[in-house]
Design a protein around this nucleic acid. Structure first.
Lengths: 223, 223
DNA sequence: GGGCGCCGTTACCGACTTGTTACCGGGGTG
DNA sequence: CACCCCGGTAACAAGTCGGTAACGGCGCCC
């Protein structure tokens, strides 16, 4: 689990990095806008912690740039009183925020919650209802049956569906999670992927036993 | 998603309630300490918005009382400059705060963020009287009967009608909420939508059991 | 180099959704 | 009474959405 922390204050950066490292996360640091984007591309972190007040161009630009190319969870750090900035950040696609000063305990709790919500589990297998998904082996087993081999994309799709099992996941979110947000015309990609997945998983052809379509919304993994 | 708003200023209370209702939340109001606690127990809201300056005993007591019996997210409203009050509120277990004056946009963004952070996914189900509306699955169930699938627009229409169940909602508001724009020439859209909805929901043809027309005003969902 | 799996792309079909136009009927008003 | 506004109903057309099939490029491994 790799986290990118962006802050221009070296002390705070070190503190945050220390707390996260101690909790077992792998941490990448950046001190300004340019470095943040470079690091993001180079390291592809699972979550970004971003100070809203960066010297060289504000944190907004970083947030927007990252959001433009990925659906990775973003947590903003703000000073008390920056409420307007905060709203802008949330509307730009940030997922959560933390008001300085904060305790390491709070930080960790939020990071964990955010990762869980995004369906990014630390473990190598996720389970929900009838299915057990092995993220490492790229395999899924249904009702304790024999494991079925999955492709990379199929695994990514199921990862979020299993994490949100029983709840509808919007097509946009699936697209963002599996492909990383390209043009939104790629509904077809999702259609194909779901279709191929169904052929693998559903023995009853046609009957969408597991992968349920919520028309006009998205897909849902039946519990 | 049910929110409890507590404020002694009737204007501000109405404003906040209106903004939230329009965003699709179901809103319960209270004007003083006693009412707030009674409402909290009776309605069990998913989030509480609480003015720090209440006449009969301060908002602190309400905050503490609520915190003593529930982990529901609490957002405090404060006047600018009440820094100590703010700190006290946060120490008492409030989860976020908002400094007056604030824009509806800010309010909404913060409420959304707070709900998300609390892991309460926006759009579970809304209930009122005989109906239970599943915003996630785009379905409605009447008198505990089998769920009826809804289209996107139908869901949006019912969302606000259910949130305002028992009260008339003006045609303008419905138009604004469902389509969100344009001049008032689009009455026909609303007529059609209501008609299609009635055909789906009312087994008794003609008898407007659920969707009641308030002539010259708008529509009302019967409780 | 040839098979094979993965996956992006195009095409087509049927079903549903939604906007639009037209018509009907009632109630109030000049 | 004629008229008109309002709400309900019907029918149509365009657009969208989801499912399925088929093709072909690409990388990989024998």
């Amino acid at each position: 689990m790799k986290l990118l922390v962006v802050d221009d204050d070296p002390d705070l950066l070190a503190l945050v990095a220390f707390a996260l490292t101690n909790a077992g996360y792998s941490v990448v640091k950046a001190a300004d806008t340019a470095e943040a984007l470079a690091m993001f591309d180079a390291e592809v972190p699972n979550l970004v912690i971003l100070d809203i007040n960066l010297p060289s161009g504000s944190g907004f630009d970083v947030c927007k740039s990252i959001r433009a190319r990925s659906a990775v969870p973003i947590m903003m750090l703000t000073a008390r009183g920056d409420e307007e900035d905060l709203v802008r950040a949330l509307e730009l696609g940030a997922d959560d925020y933390l008001t300085k000063p904060f305790s390491p305990r709070t930080l960790l709790a939020r990071v964990k919650a955010l990762l869980r919500r995004a369906g990014i589990e630390a473990g190598d297998t996720v389970e929900a209802g009838r299915v057990s998904l092995d993220l490492e082996a790229h395999a899924i087993s249904i009702d304790g049956g024999p494991p079925v081999r999955l492709t990379r994309l199929e695994t990514r799709l199921l990862q979020i569906l299993v994490a949100q099992a029983g709840h509808v996941v919007s097509a946009e979110r699936l697209l963002a999670h599996v492909w990383g947000h390209r043009g939104s015309g790629d509904r077809q990609l999702l259609k194909q992927l779901v279709h191929r997945l169904r052929q693998k998983l559903e023995r009853d052809p046609g009957g969408a036993d597991l992968l349920h379509t919520e028309s006009g919304v998205g897909y849902r993994l039946k519990i």
